[in-house]
């Protein structure tokens, strides 16, 4: 459903020169699967997800969502995904309901369809109490709920969560993870990026460990454990990060 092949992204940086943020990354995600993208800050996770959400364009390689290419069919791709990221904030001067309705209308939803869907979401996410409060007055957890409602309003088959639990308290984070599990069970194709290992361990069906723009290893938790003969996931992760970087395929 999501197919990423040899995706690269580099850009000009005054200090570092030509900086390779993502280097030949390949992976695929099926419906009903949670794909974890694990890596330290600056590993290139957000860049990969920004390319998937068509906000950035890749320098090389391809990424397809349900067969639609992110570079050439961006508008179609944006209809199919719900993108929740640290960088996708909500409007302070609008209420939760206004934001959800605005994005629903941008997705072409109208009338009772939009009303019913948003009411259902408000109920599911327990947002009824603050649906008409301007977002500037909401707590971080409430804001995150608005973001999620905004991303789910058009019932997209693909969902991307980029560091979605950042800054949330334990209770809210826990209920978010529960929600993601429910979405997976409903057959959604989910990418979940984080730098918190416990979340990946508990949630993801398959995991890619990213560092300095490259995927160091990819597989289910069991596959990774057996491949590296290491039961403790944290040790496994540090072991991977401390190894010298492999030379990418196709390099001179």
């Amino acid at each position: 459903m999501i197919a990423v092949e040899r995706l690269s992204k580099s850009y000009d940086d005054v200090q570092r020169g030509r900086f390779v943020a993502v280097d030949e990354v390949s992976f695929s995600v099926r419906p009903g699967e949670i794909f974890g993208l694990l890596g330290p800050n600056g590993a290139g996770k957000t860049t990969v997800l920004r390319i998937l959400s068509t906000v950035l364009r890749p320098t090389a390689g391809t990424a397809k969502v349900l067969g639609y290419d992110v570079t050439t069919q961006g508008a179609m791709v944006r209809r199919l995904i719900g993108f929740v990221s640290n960088n996708t904030a909500i409007y302070d001067r609008m209420t939760a309901a206004e934001i959800v309705h605005f994005f629903g209308r941008l997705h072409g939803m109208q009338g009772s369809l939009l009303r019913d869907r948003s009411e259902a979401l408000f109920q599911q996410l327990r947002m009824e109490d603050f649906r008409d409060v301007p977002c500037a007055k909401l707590s971080t957890g409430m804001k995150q709920k608005v973001s999620i409602a905004r991303a789910l309003i058009h019932d997209p088959p693909v969902l991307v969560f980029d560091e979605a639990t950042l800054g949330l308290d334990v209770l809210v984070a826990r209920s978010l993870l529960e929600l993601i599990r429910q979405l997976r069970d409903a057959g959604k194709c989910i990418i979940f990026s984080t730098h918190i290992m416990r979340e990946v361990e508990r949630l993801c069906d398959s995991i890619a460990v990213m560092h300095q723009g490259r995927i160091l290893d990819i597989g289910s938790l069991e596959q990774l454990r057996s491949r590296h003969a290491e039961e403790d996931f944290e040790e496994l992760f540090f072991g991977l990060l401390s190894r010298p970087l492999p030379i990418p395929v196709g390099s001179p």
Binding site: T54, S85, A89, S147
Partner: peptide, 9 residues
């Protein structure tokens, strides 16, 4: 909020 809008349809 700009990125939210850019990732919308």
């Amino acid at each position: 909020t700009l990125e939210t809008l850019l990732s919308s349809p």
